[in-house]
Design a protein around this nucleic acid. Structure first.
Lengths: 244, 244
DNA sequence: TGGGTTAATTGACGATGGTCAAATTTTGAA
DNA sequence: TTCAAAATTTGACCATCGTCAATTAACCCA
């Protein structure tokens, strides 16, 4: 399952369409070839674990295709889905920087390819090209912002509004515009995971979904969601849009 | 109000007792003197703004004494207290790294002294001493962890338990052990701010406090809190401690 | 394809939280 | 000290949420 040099395609990282979007874009041709030779690309099936909380950090992971879920649990054994990672995203830099064990786990949500870069390789590249360090700094700073925004939303919004926000965010990544201007999406997450992301029980989420359907804001069928164009642009949505 | 070279004490950063605890501890004597000459130390009175959301980032701030509150608002104008900063903590590195405007504001909670380090000075020191960059990386990574922990707590705990956790955290910084083994603390925050930290309304917090008193877990009088020794060690505290 | 397992929905009900409003306390400035 | 503004507490009331339990639907593997 593990391939060297960037996969069977043979092009390695140089030809990787993600290079533009990831931290590694600042590497020159030689450095990219070096990275290419030393990373391990691996396929994951849906639900497979990429790394787990508690284990030592041997390197970073870069999502090549598919979607990964970042999960973190608390002392009581509850588990929360913190965020999703998409192609181009680099995971697990925290443990590497701090030399600590992983504090959260990552798993593939669907069939995915993820490249592993050993700490030694990262270290070497960081020393060779300071711009890479800058890139990581910017990445962390952005993640930090995201986490803070998340905190503020959780503290100020109702579960209903948190879920609408989440739907919107997921739609940006997973949705397609329908011919009528509405939006379709195949949800990448179970109800349980969706619920954990907004800090609610899955029963509560079921009821929120029920209310969104009653209010005509969205239609849910299994993991398929449809949101009408008219409801999509609303910044937020209090009751059935009091002004209709 | 603005002093050069680390304050009237004359010793500058070299004699600053925080040097050990802050990111700057990796600077050598010469670099520390350079920092000392170029930072601006300023006194803030209770409630004074250190910097505000939306304004450009001209440098970083280092808390020398007192306590600073990090606040962030959302679109609806609600404001949330994200965390507190203590002597040795460096604030505002995010905007500097990303070259963006501040996304949150900082204010002094009580009489405080805060040193300002201009971006040019930071940049120069970063180039001169790569270990400083490492320090900042570690600091960001830790802040990230803290934010993630906060997210998980908010998603899994009841308001009551979130508040107990907050009390515990504040006690670590602001509390003193009483002769009977209980703990006293002068709360550094208003009820409103405490409430915003756990994502609840201030009325709700009042009621939570009332219940904690009924249950004999803590006694509140204005900003003074007392927690009995017997209740302090409990990991969490469900109802009146069902096992007493 | 069948059967067992997990996921999701729904109902009931008590607990908790938000909102509005009023009373009370504290605080800060004159 | 005194007064006005701000903070805090409390009550009433209703909406929302968590929990337990019972279905129903979806899924996966043999």
């Amino acid at each position: 399952m593990v391939e060297q040099g960037g996969g069977a395609s043979g092009a390695g990282c140089m030809g990787c369409p993600l290079r533009q979007r990831s931290e590694w874009c600042v590497l020159n041709e030689e450095e990219t070839r070096f990275l290419s030779r030393h990373l391990k690309k691996r396929r994951y099936r849906a639900g497979e674990t990429i790394f787990s909380a508690g284990e030592p950090s041997h390197g970073v992971y870069c999502v090549a295709s598919g979607t990964a879920a970042i999960r973190k649990g608390n002392a009581e054994g509850n588990t929360v889905l913190l965020r999703l990672a998409y192609p181009g995203d680099t995971l697990g830099y925290r443990g590497l920087l701090l030399g600590e064990n992983r504090r959260y786990g990552a798993e593939a949500l669907g069939p995915s390819k993820v490249c592993f870069v050993d700490r030694a390789v990262v270290k070497l590249l960081l020393e060779r090209n300071p711009a890479l360090g800058q890139q990581f700094l910017r990445r962390i700073a952005r993640d930090m912002d995201e986490a803070h925004d998340h905190l503020v939303r959780n503290a100020t919004l109702s579960n209903r509004d948190k879920f609408i926000h989440l739907l919107r965010a997921l739609m940006n990544r997973h949705g397609r515009t329908a011919t009528d201007g509405g939006h379709f999406m195949e949800l990448p997450l179970s109800r349980r995971d969706l619920a954990s992301m907004i800090g609610a029980r899955h029963e509560t989420l079921s009821r929120i979904i029920g209310r969104l359907e009653e209010d005509g804001i969205a239609r849910f069928s299994g993991r398929t969601v449809y949101v009408a164009r008219s409801h999509w642009l609303l910044n937020d949505s209090r009751p059935p849009t009091l002004l209709d």
